[in-house]
Design a protein around this nucleic acid. Structure first.
Lengths: 230, 230
DNA sequence: TGACATAACCAACAGTTGTTCAGTTAGAGG
DNA sequence: CCTCTAACTGAACAACTGTTGGTTATGTCA
């Protein structure tokens, strides 16, 4: 079924509008990356088939397949970062900020398993992952670290910078492990996701779980993709 | 360099010893799986080249490539399970049992990044991962759950079965996230692994970190692979 | 020594992939 | 109308994949 030939031979774009094919290619690649079980088996010809275009036409817009994939990944990465910032921007205090940020992370990852796996699940060829040069999601990690540190302000014992770093790191690993396993092993009986998020943050902030749960934004709050963008 | 032709045409095995090639194939596949960045790109011909044998010769020992990979994964999985059991078998109390078990898990995963990613990275086709049918490491998970529950015995509040399950699940996700990110993002400044393990278990058992750290078995304790098995 | 089953090979198949390059089409500007 | 060029195509390339059928070498046993 995936090898179906295109029925409509796809009208060529008008003169100045060569960019619309580029956008279509990006969308198709994103869709395929989110669909495929193994992201790195994405194929140039799959993208071409999806759009209904000759494989060679891609080379007018991207130097090669790596560039196309890298472009898609950069977009997804920026989308996640933007979502997390948006979720936290109106937080009245650091704890709410932290909760909103982490909830956005987990929900994005669970909502887009293919994209999450592509970005954070294992190593893509080094030059493909955006931010890999500066640490593969370093901005996200640092945001979590500072947010957690701010939320832990006012504890009776001031942690050192190393302790703050380690605490943030462990929070991120916990979030990542939750998303990864939740996505990849749907057959084991998972509790409701919000319970897990609340429990996880409760552990890492030393606050009671119900206090965290009360701070969790509603599911509909997170601004997602525009439905027509894919 | 990986495409080097074999120089010695490989002496054929004597009469009853057809099984030694099978073992060599398994070893070669294991080595390649642990080496490759993307496990699912393992190729029948790569294995054949590694051993120095014609691609067709593999079909005398395995019905197809999937069977070979599945066999290797099953061996690795059983190895991990055995290591965890061995590590915990002489534990005087449940907390030591839990610590030893988790430490063995993390150390095995960190010591064998390729194998860990292959087993738990969630990118292999479903039928390849052993235990996927009954929950992808369900035995390991259940061992952790019961171990954690036993270690939490004597707390002032007895948790329900659901709470025990959720707590074990979260511990496993944390362990998995730690191993995954530690393996895949070596460029970010990680604290010593034992500190992370102790801190993680401290969080999940509500015990002070130094108490946990004192229970951590020495690194040399874990019986690893025989050096010549690969 | 001869027969025979085992162990492994050789060559080929049909399919896939990324990439290149010489073309073709079509629409906008003169 | 003509021309030019952006937009795209078709065909081919070399390399790679899993898999197969037929073939050869080799050790063992009678």
């Amino acid at each position: 079924m995936s090898s179906q030939e295109r029925s409509a031979p796809r009208r060529r774009n008008p003169r100045g509008q060569g960019q619309v094919l580029k956008a279509q290619l990006v969308d198709a690649a994103a869709k395929l990356l989110s669909t495929l079980d193994q992201p790195e088996t994405l194929t140039l010809r799959q993208v071409a088939r999806e759009v209904g275009v000759a494989p060679a036409s891609i080379y007018s817009h991207f130097p090669d397949l790596s560039a196309l994939i890298q472009h898609v990944l950069r977009l997804r990465y920026e989308e996640l970062a933007r979502l997390m910032d948006q979720a936290a921007q109106s937080a009245p205090d650091p704890l709410v900020d932290l909760v909103a940020r982490c909830a956005a992370y987990v929900r994005w990852g669970v909502g887009q398993p293919g994209h999450y796996r592509t970005l954070f699940g294992g190593r893509m060829p080094d030059d493909l992952v955006p931010g890999s040069a500066h640490g593969a999601g370093a901005e996200l990690l640092e945001a979590v670290v500072t947010s957690l540190a701010a939320a832990a302000e006012g504890e009776r014992k001031q942690p050192s910078a190393e302790q703050q770093w380690q605490a943030g790191l462990m929070l991120w690993t916990a979030l990542h492990g939750l998303v990864s396993l939740y996505n990849d092993h749907g057959n084991i009986p998972w509790p409701p996701l919000d319970d897990l998020i609340a429990d996880l943050l409760s552990l890492h902030t030393a606050r009671p779980a119900d206090e965290i749960a009360a701070l969790l934004p509603q599911c509909g709050d997170a601004p997602g993709l525009a439905p027509d963008s894919i």
